[in-house]
């Protein structure tokens, strides 16, 4: 266990180090999730397994109702599987109690949502600070961190605006800044471009890719936006609650000729 702990500490201190480590940041094993709908039981996940490496940019694709959001919620610790297990940094999530789960959500995972989910009564700065408050950090430290992040996402001039005073793209930038507040090892994005137009969506994807490279954070994104394929290291296709296929970027470029735009630096 000591090795793992060391690895985590390194990862937290020095972002890019994470990218060079080959160990898995997320491991999902045989996940099964059922929902009770009246008399019927619907199986949203039917034995999904997936290993995600540190520093990867993963897209989870699939039609609506394929179970990708459910899978996303499982690996984010937002919901519990009926069977199977999820390991984050080699920690089995099922072993964690409510407080440890909250710690994990606060420190290890950042979340980005389709509908931004900013707290409407708080300013951009306060929204980004929120995770640092929950982490128990002093507010000066939180403010400094939030300002730094808002600067990175290009909203340094909108610190004191409420979400209602920001455009969709700007709100999603605030949400991205918020997801990084406590230096997580993973950022989970659920349809991050779903509510955005083509141009704004592209900008958001570019920003996420940039943060993935510069900060070394693993990004896992549930999406059906094909623009996302461009920047992903791997694309996981989910269909009917199962992993249909996993493709590396090189393979996708063969399949879809028009998507070879992005070049690696």
């Amino acid at each position: 266990m000591a090795v793992t702990e060391e690895a985590i500490t390194n990862g937290a201190v020095n972002g890019p180090v994470r990218a060079t480590q080959t160990e898995y940041v997320v491991r999902a094993k045989d996940l099964i999730k059922e929902f009770q709908m009246g008399q019927e039981t619907t199986r949203a996940l039917n034995g999904v397994s997936l290993d995600i490496k540190r520093g990867e940019y993963i897209s989870i694709m699939g039609p609506s109702g394929s179970g990708k959001s459910t899978f996303f919620n499982m690996i984010g610790g937002l919901d519990k599987p009926n069977k199977g297990s999820v390991f984050i940094n080699d920690v089995d999530m099922a072993q964690l109690d409510a407080q440890e789960l909250a710690f994990l959500r606060c420190h290890t995972i950042g979340y980005i949502f389709q509908s931004y989910n900013l707290i409407p009564v708080m300013t951009a700065l306060e929204n980004v600070m929120l995770p640092t408050i929950f982490a128990g950090k002093p507010s000066e430290e939180g403010t400094a961190r939030a300002m730094e992040l808002l600067e990175i996402v290009g909203l340094g001039h909108r610190l004191h605006h409420k979400p209602s005073e920001l455009s969709g793209g700007q709100q999603q930038r605030v949400a991205i800044a918020r997801s990084l507040a406590n230096n997580p090892s993973i950022v989970l994005a659920d349809e991050p471009t779903g509510n955005l137009d083509l141009k704004t969506g592209t900008e958001i994807i570019a920003l996420m890719r940039k943060l993935n490279k510069e900060q070394g954070v693993t990004i896992i994104s549930a999406t059906h936006d094909h623009k996302m394929v461009d920047v992903s290291d791997r694309v996981v296709w989910i269909r009917d609650g199962r992993v249909d296929k996993i493709e590396n970027r090189e393979d996708i470029e063969v399949h879809i000729g028009s998507m070879g735009g992005e070049e690696e630096a």
Binding site: M1, T4, E5, I8, T9, A12, V13, N89, D90, V91, Q95, L96, D97, Q99, E100, A102, F103, L104, C106, H107, T108, I133, F134, A135, G136, K137, E141, R145, N182, N183
Partner: peptide
């Protein structure tokens, strides 16, 4: 950029601690 999850010696959950309770 502080180290938020400095593991305690003997921790068996990979640095995952109990979340702090806010005052």
């Amino acid at each position: 950029m502080s180290v938020e999850a400095a593991p305690r010696p003997g921790a068996d959950k990979g640095g995952v601690k109990k979340q702090v309770e806010l005052p």
